[in-house]
Amino acid sequence: MSSHDHHDHDHHHHHDHDGGPRLSRRELIQQSGLIGAALLVSGSAVMSPDRAWAMETTALKPDTMATLIQLARDIYPHDHVADKFYAVAVKGHDTKAGTDAAHKDLIEQGIADLDKRAGAGGYRGLGWEEERVAILRQIEATPFFQTVRGGLVVSLYNQKEVWPLFGYEGESFSKGGYIKRGFDDIQWL
């Protein structure tokens, strides 16, 4: 953890604009999305299989973004968390790649390396999580992997829309705390 991670995250969700296939973070999250089905790439956008959401890339190749989303899920797999949240979590890499050539290289080359290691069908072509994870174990010490993983710690788990999926209730001051809302309601002990 560092404040740096956090600041990166702060920038993730303010760079989208209205119109076109690009969705703002909020719009993206308001729409439904399938969990764990193959992502589609069309033009400069990554799309969910049911076309319920799409994310346009500006600096990274859309294929790279699609693989990043899969990579994010493989690093922090939560079967009850939809792809759209992983997409939001890695969107910042596209934003940063737009102004930081070194970052763009880090991500593009890192993803290209994953595809190369995976063989003919590329990283996303590997059907089993354990096949993909075996590749990740080979590269887990690289700056590429650590950059993606380190960023996700904040950009995935600090999405307020994700918290209810884990039973975390967030802010409570405005509701008067839990003194009358179950701070001691455990029954099973």
Binding site: M1, I75, P77, H78, V133, V154, L156, Y157, F166
Partner: peptide, 21 residues
């Protein structure tokens, strides 16, 4: 949840970590 993700096992990843969360 945000700090648990950062501190439960810093650097940890994969299902051993996420099934905890």
């Amino acid at each position: 949840l945000p700090f648990m993700a950062a501190f439960l096992n810093p650097g940890g990843w994969g299902r051993s970590f996420t099934t905890g969360l």
